[in-house]
Amino acid sequence: MAKGYSIFIGLVIVAAFCLAAWFLSPKGENQTTWRSSLIIAFISCYLMWFITFLAQLHPLIAPRRGDIKEGYQFE
C-alpha cells in the first residue's frame, strides 16, 4: 500500500491542495491571508509527513524489545 513512491503521490496531492487553496480562497481583503496560510500549512504538514516517512523508508535499526509476552510475538 505504501511504498517508496508514495512520497511523490503525497507531493501531487499536496500540490493539488495548494492549487485549490490558491484558487478557492475567498475573495476580498483577506484573500492573501487565506492563500498564504493555507499553502504554508499544507507544505509544512507535507514536509513533516515526508520526513517521517523517509526516516522509516530504509531503516538502519529495527525495533527490539525484551518484554514481549508469550502469544503476542506474532502481532
Binding site: M1, A2, K3, G4, S6, W49, T52, F53, Q56, L57, P59, A62, P63, R64, R65, G66, I68, K69, E70, Q73
Partner: peptide, 19 residues
C-alpha cells in the same frame, strides 16, 4: 518469554502515516 526479540521488515511495505 523474556528473551529479547528484534523486528524485521515486512517486504517493501512502509507505514503510511506517522511513526
Amino acid at each position: 518469554q523474556g528473551q529479547p526479540l528484534t523486528a524485521k521488515l515486512k517486504g517493501d511495505y512502509r507505514y503510511p502515516f506517522g511513526i
